[in-house]
Amino acid sequence: MSPPPIRSFFQSSVALNIGARFLALIIVFAFFAIFVEDGKFYTLRNLENIVRQSSVYATAALGMTFVIITAGIDLSVGSIIALAVVVVAWTLNIQIDGANGELVYLVHQYPFATPILACALAIGASTLVGLLNGALIVRLRIVPFIVTLGSMGIIRGLAKGIANERDIYPPEETWIGGLMDPTLTNKAKSGMIFPAGVWILILCIAVASFILKYTRLGRHVYAIGSNEETARLCGVPVGRTKLIVYALTGFFCALAGFMQFSYIGGVGQPTTGVMYELFVIAAVIIGGASFSGGEGSILGTIVGALIITILYMGGQQMGWPKWVQEMVIGGIIILAVAVDRLRHRKLA
């Protein structure tokens, strides 16, 4: 018997999915490129800005992609980002007894180790709250929407508590604050092409795609979202997988938090990242994931994050009032999902 014909990558439905999304990205970009005055939209600097801004959403959306593929949701991502931002600033702001008995900043005493400590603490705290989200969902069998709706408030409160409800201004600029520094206008950094934070994102994209595609964990994530009962019947560790997925979201939010910290100028602002959960969820959904689970891809999510950011920044540069921007982004989310549903119905 002859082997079945192997369809090329470009004929596969996955490629078609991603292709359609790239097309949408190009259309949205072209729209603003044409209508924003004087070609300001496609200057290198503006492109860099788009990439910088979308990195925060995209990084957090990596974790959200895992969650939504399992048919879950995490509303607490905006709050976790704020928690990471605050923990970084708080650590950089620690004072200790110096050699002469007076108070000195830890970061002045140990300029190398303190930023690393700050990142480690932020990653630890964010991953832990993610893990707690997962534990409540798995152990108490509360639906993810409710658990993370609650933890969204709890974590935001925690961030404000740590910051004493004020912005924390660290005494020293560190490399964390410089993660998202533009590389185009800065001669010293122009060799990097992208800001360091964007490189972190690119690395994370590779790792997350690899996990989803090539590891048992990744395939179990799809299996759970596709048919949880079957996955359980077949011996997939459903509870453990979900725990890992929510913890992973916490981890990626910490990285997004570092970028946000830099993006807002190295300040520990406990009120940052409000409403980000909506942008992040929208990026994942526009990227082709389904709320009923089993579908979604990292590449799609990244395209989704870019579309959201371009709409947001393009709207600003068109001089649209904020209320128009908000309505347009809301409308696009519904439109994207509606088009997807129509396509699905045709397939079925």
Binding site: Y222, A223, E229, V236
Partner: peptide
């Protein structure tokens, strides 16, 4: 009881990949 989104081979070996 199949996972509709997964491939045939993944369904066969689900849990024992």
């Amino acid at each position: 009881s199949l996972a509709p989104h997964l491939s045939a081979m993944e369904n066969i070996l689900l849990g024992i990949e």
